[in-house]
Amino acid sequence: METGNHTSTSEFLLLGLSSRPERQELIFGLFLVMYLVGAAGNLLIILAIGSDSHLHTPMYFFLSSLSLVDFCFISATVPKMLVNIQTKAQSISYGGCLAQIYFCILLANMDNFLLTAMAYDRYVAICHPLRYSTVMSLRICALMLGSSWLIASSHSLLHTLLMARLEFCASNVISYFFCDLVPLLQLSCSKTQLNQLMILLVGGLIVLIPFLGILISYIHIVSAVLKFPSARGKQKAFSTCGSHLTVVILFYGTITGVYLSPSSSHSADKDSLASVMYMVVTPMLNPFIYCLRNKDMKGALRKLVSVKAPPHGL
């Protein structure tokens, strides 16, 4: 009879993105730059929105929340990877591995829910502008954010507890740069059918329902914008959605490729590359995608980082 809640493996080995020693320095430098750029960019967005009262609106409320989640997302895995490369170690403790799983699922879910909330915000702003202040009130926005954290926490806790009941008594080598569900399930010597079923059912619903919400929102948005009389109005409306759509396509494309494709189609190289895209590249690009073409955000950032020159003659 199988028993759970224990394991004969006290640590795992993370192989990272390449096993070749000559590539480690390049990978370290590349990921250090991506981490610093992503962390600084997302923190600047949070500070800029918080310091400018003109940006205290639902759209920027969700954007600042997304930036916080993205900052935590890259911080959950990249620093450990950089430390391992620098110290020429590959190990991560069993508890540390479960912690990475919990936070990665939690933050990926929050990205998912926040992208949906932002799509809904654009839908209300474009399709029902006169009701915008009522529908997207501070109370409703806070309720949306709080419920998202609750659902995301419950979902990540479910998978973490299901993983904790498994035994790992053979290989402990993970060909990823972080601990993730799919490679860990492949290492387990316990029955993993329940884990895989929860990934497909619960995980599928967690991804599918928000994605359908985004899709329906944009169907209504496109239908409403096409009825605008002026070409300039259409262009302005679509430009406010272009950045969001770019991130949505990138995020859902990589998530689907890693977690919702059949296990027979998985390969270490493909899954590792997809994981880098949604866990490192997307959070790093968030400040650029959302802010470079946004006049309000650029103005707030200039106010935040500008230093007043001293008067002449002093």
Rank of each mutant, 00 (worst) to 15 (best):
D111T: 12
L47H: 10
F28W: 12
F178S: 14
L143P: 03
F31E: 13
F31S: 13
K234C: 04
V280F: 08
L197S: 06
M59H: 13
F177H: 15
L285A: 05
V69C: 03
Y278N: 11
Y35G: 10
L250C: 03
S75T: 15
W149H: 09
T7A: 07
H220A: 14
Y290K: 12
L194P: 02
M277I: 15
N294H: 14
T256L: 14
H312G: 05
L106G: 05
S239I: 00
S154N: 06
M59C: 07
L143Q: 04
N195E: 00
I92A: 13
L98H: 00
V83N: 09
I174G: 05
R232N: 11
K234D: 01
I289W: 07
G213F: 04
L194M: 01
L184Q: 01
R139K: 13
L197A: 08
I151C: 04
R302M: 14
V78H: 10
A125F: 10
S261H: 05
P129N: 03
A237N: 03
A48R: 13
L143V: 02
M118F: 02
I85T: 13
S264K: 12
A152K: 02
L115S: 04
I209R: 04
G242E: 14
F168V: 04
K236D: 09
V207C: 10
F177S: 15
Y35D: 10
P210T: 02
G257K: 07
L200S: 14
A39G: 07
S64L: 01
A125E: 15
I174F: 04
I45H: 00
A170Y: 11
I27Y: 13
P58C: 07
M1W: 01
F103G: 11
K298H: 10
Q235R: 07
M279E: 12
G38R: 00
Q24M: 08
